[in-house]
């Protein structure tokens, strides 16, 4: 059984392969500490694939889909292309870690990929988030921040605009 982790960034989707699954205990000290050190962390996971978003509109569509817990066409293609295929009639041999449980269940349902969403996935995502631009060679220094800035502006502006009646959504 191979384990993968899906990482959604402002630049695009990334798939990481866990190479050392047995060693990872939930919230184990070892994992927490090795996450900090890139050298040790890259012994636990390695980048399997990265797909940048094709445009700002594409990125915005995808962040919306991810937030609603739906599988966007881009994500579907990405996963189907990069995850090992199951033989017909047999159960898939891989397990995909997704940070958000809602998205995890939609992926499992629509693409028949077994998914999990737990603290281990969250811990690994912390490590990926910390070292992301060093894993993905396409991203130069500051590129990720630029895409974050652009996408955040698009996303936030569309949210503010969406609220047509200009009423505050008060938190109760």
């Amino acid at each position: 059984m191979t384990s993968f982790v899906l990482f959604e960034s402002a630049s695009g989707y990334a798939l990481f392969e866990q190479t050392d699954t047995d060693e990872i205990g939930q919230l184990a000290d070892k994992l927490q500490n090795s996450v900090v050190d890139l050298e040790r962390f890259s012994q636990i996971v390695r980048l399997k694939a990265f797909m940048p978003f094709s445009s700002a509109e594409n990125a915005l569509e995808n962040i919306r889909a991810v937030n609603e817990g739906t599988v966007h066409e881009t994500l579907k293609n990405f996963l189907e292309m990069n995850l090992p295929k199951a033989k017909p009639g047999k159960k898939s041999k891989c397990m995909l870690g997704v940070i958000d449980s809602k998205l995890a269940s939609t992926i499992a349902e629509e693409l028949s990929i077994p998914c999990e969403s737990n603290d281990t996935v969250l811990e690994i995502s912390r490590g990926i988030r910390l070292h992301f631009s060093r894993f993905v060679s396409e991203l130069k220094d500051g590129d990720l921040e630029k895409t974050q800035l652009g996408l955040a502006h698009n996303y936030s502006r569309s949210k503010v605009k969406f609220n047509v009646n200009k009423v505050d959504n008060m938190i109760i």
Binding site: E8, A10, D100, E145, Y155
Partner: peptide, 17 residues
């Protein structure tokens, strides 16, 4: 800038490092 509910960090996980 992120217009989202701080109770739901998963909603802005794509925007924050």
């Amino acid at each position: 800038p992120i217009i989202e509910d701080a109770r739901r960090p998963e909603k802005y996980r794509m925007l924050v490092g």
